[in-house]
Design a binder for these strands. Structure first.
Lengths: 246, 246
DNA sequence: GTCAAGACTTTGTCAGGACATTTGTACGTC
DNA sequence: GACGTACAAATGTCCTGACAAAGTCTTGAC
């Protein structure tokens, strides 16, 4: 059976790398359902010559999809489209953006915005203990339902972040506008019962537990940019991720 | 400042790819503390010529470490060793192996092992609704403290898995011995209060919540191999992961 | 002494080719 | 008909070479 040739338009003038242009167009082709799960995928050599790209370039694009769990490669057989159940990837994205992607309407209220000293947070951010950090406490609603309580500590260079900015966009968008791009993050996920104030802030019912997430994010230079301690209403939120062997 | 030249021995006769041999030796050099965080890393071109490898091969090895958060690359500047806080990676590993890695002593008791029909589980495994699946319910202790309740559904081809095997090793080890190698998995993490029987099985105190993890694992061919619904004592367990941008 | 232009260093992207390894299939042979 | 070999097809590994882009550092003009 001949594999379907996916329509792709490559713009060599664009600053976007060719492999990424290709990967994005292949991704959307699969998401649109042009290829069904189990369908064979055009082989690397054929696709390279059809698109007048080199094989390494095509290969790297395909690898991006394999990493996301959309394609499965098998030496000697070919590449096939994976089950759509796996088609998602845990990414370094913010809750705000995730909600927008899902078509929901997030709303953020800043409860606290102040400069504090906190030995534990400063230590995590690799700063002296007595450094004045920007401490934020926000509550996030989705479609008017309280969803999460977001607590963050930021280095003093971000002390000029305003309440208005934060109610408008996610923290990561604000950071990026200031040229700080979180590149890697370590997350730890757990669960516990809420404190009394958390229960009030999220209007939780009795015996409703919280999903907790603490995150330390680093920029490309490897210096810490943000420490977060977030709690989510467990009944309204799950964390999805795709794992592979490698 | 000249970057330290890490001692590496490459065996071209080995079936292990050169880039992976290199990546492993670089990894252990960093773990052993030969290079401290922030230290400059030997540049790609120099390392390639020193080891008489091509630059793409060296580059691919370095990329493995970057993916694990051990190194940070910066165009025009060089590559540096990242903060050791990030040096872990969420992998497709089993709880059993994780505990052994941490030096703890897991013990597994099989509570149930039976053939059942379950429409939901069969659907997830892409099998007909009335297929007889192997249903397992296990409780796992670490150092004699109850930690997790593990529920799994497996396709009928694994119906010969015995209770003895399962009490001896993790499920994934048993599957691999049978030639089934889980390659990708989708996980969903949440939290909730335990049911009465869960509270008994894990001897939970009042108001102690559970961390829930449901997982659907696929083999290299893309067919489902295992469905799991696991619950963990939240006070004794957290899930750690490293995320990067890419 | 300060600042800007340019040289240099280092990683990022892309091409094209060669060979190895694995899988599936077609064809014989027994 | 069963088994094994030979071949084809596809991905996996590795190489050489070249240029682009970003950051750093030196040099020189003012």
């Amino acid at each position: 059976m001949p594999a379907l040739e996916i329509d792709v338009a490559i713009d060599r003038g664009s600053p976007v790398p060719l492999y990424h242009q290709l990967a994005e167009q292949l991704t959307s082709a699969i998401r649109d359902g042009d290829l069904a799960p189990g369908d064979p995928f055009e082989n690397e050599v054929a696709m390279a010559s059809r698109l007048t790209l080199s094989r390494p370039t095509v290969r790297r694009a395909i690898q991006e999809l394999v990493d996301q769990g959309m394609l499965i490669r098998q030496r000697g057989r070919g590449t096939i489209v994976a089950s759509p159940k796996v088609h998602r990837q845990a990414a370094l994205s913010s809750l705000h953006d995730d909600l927008v992607d899902q078509g929901r309407h997030p709303r953020t209220t800043v409860l606290q915005r102040e400069l504090v000293t906190d030995a534990h947070a400063a230590g995590a951010l690799e700063l002296p203990e007595d450094t004045e950090l920007l401490h934020l406490l926000r509550v996030r609603h989705a479609d008017d339902e309280p969803l999460a309580l977001l607590q963050n500590w930021l280095p003093p260079s971000f002390a000029d972040i305003t309440t208005e900015e934060l109610e408008d966009a996610g923290l990561y968008a604000v950071l990026r506008r200031r040229g700080a791009r979180p590149a890697v993050a370590q997350q730890s996920i757990g669960a516990r019962m809420p404190t009394a104030s958390e229960r009030r802030a999220l209007s939780l019912r009795a015996k409703e537990p919280l999903l907790t997430m603490s995150r330390l994010a680093f920029d490309a230079v490897g210096s810490p940019v943000e420490l977060g301690e977030h709690v989510y209403r467990a009944q309204a939120y799950t964390i999805d991720l795709v794992l592979d062997e490698r």
